[in-house]
């Protein structure tokens, strides 16, 4: 059923939306300059690129669910390191990990949504899927901004992490055996 995918991925993007845009501002306080930002984002994308192939192939065999779960819980753990980062070197390492996890999520998400939809109504369902997921993420960014202004950036990181951790449980509900549907 698409339901658990929608819920878990919406929640995931809510958690990420809370944290990610502000992670960048936070980095500038760790003392990065623009070239270092460039490197950090390059590393993220390149490390993603390197594992996309592999993730796609493996997920055909072992299923998408475990990759989604690894991404979600893995990111929840990584967010816990944000409040204690002190150097740009640590940022690079984290970007590599986030890149790998991001690839797992992107490829598996697309594949699983495809698995669960078919022929005629596929576009409609995917449209609706993205509607919910984007809505949550947009909302999260706004909420995140306000919360940081009023509380502290560390609280957002912890909050985002907890949301991600929770969203992992919804992934567990996804039943991948297609014949059930």
């Amino acid at each position: 059923m698409l339901k658990w995918i929608v819920i878990s991925q919406s929640l995931l993007l809510f958690g990420t939306g809370l944290v990610f845009p502000f992670y960048i501002i936070f980095l500038s306080e760790v003392g990065g300059n623009f070239s270092e930002f460039g490197i950090a984002y390059g590393i993220f994308t390149i490390s993603s690129a390197l594992v996309h192939h592999w993730v796609g192939r493996r997920s055909d065999k072992v299923g998408r669910k475990s990759f989604l779960l690894i991404n979600t819980w893995g990111s929840a753990l990584i967010y816990l390191t944000f409040p204690i980062i002190t150097s740009i070197g640590q940022v690079y390492i984290i970007q590599v990990l986030l890149g790998i996890l991001g690839a797992m999520q992107k490829t598996s998400e697309k594949a699983i949504v495809a698995d669960f939809t078919d022929g005629e109504s596929r576009g409609k369902k995917i449209g609706s899927y993205h509607f919910w997921v984007s809505l949550f993420s947009g909302f999260a960014v706004i909420v995140g901004g306000f919360l940081i202004d009023l509380l502290t950036v560390d609280i957002i990181f912890y909050f985002g992490s907890i949301i991600l951790f929770v969203s992992g449980w919804f992934i567990l509900f996804i039943n991948e055996s297609r014949d059930v549907n």
């Binding site: 819980w73 929840a76 753990l77 816990l80 390191t81 409040p83 204690i84 002190t86 560390d154 912890y158 992490s161 951790f165 992992g168 449980w169 567990l172």
Partner: peptide, 23 residues
């Protein structure tokens, strides 16, 4: 899996807060 997840995450959370406080 659930149990393991809770234990690992809980420990990581506590550690992060601890380091954050004492850093």
């Amino acid at each position: 899996i659930s149990l393991l997840a809770i234990v690992v995450y809980g420990a990581a959370f506590a550690l992060s807060i601890y380091i954050n406080q004492t850093e």
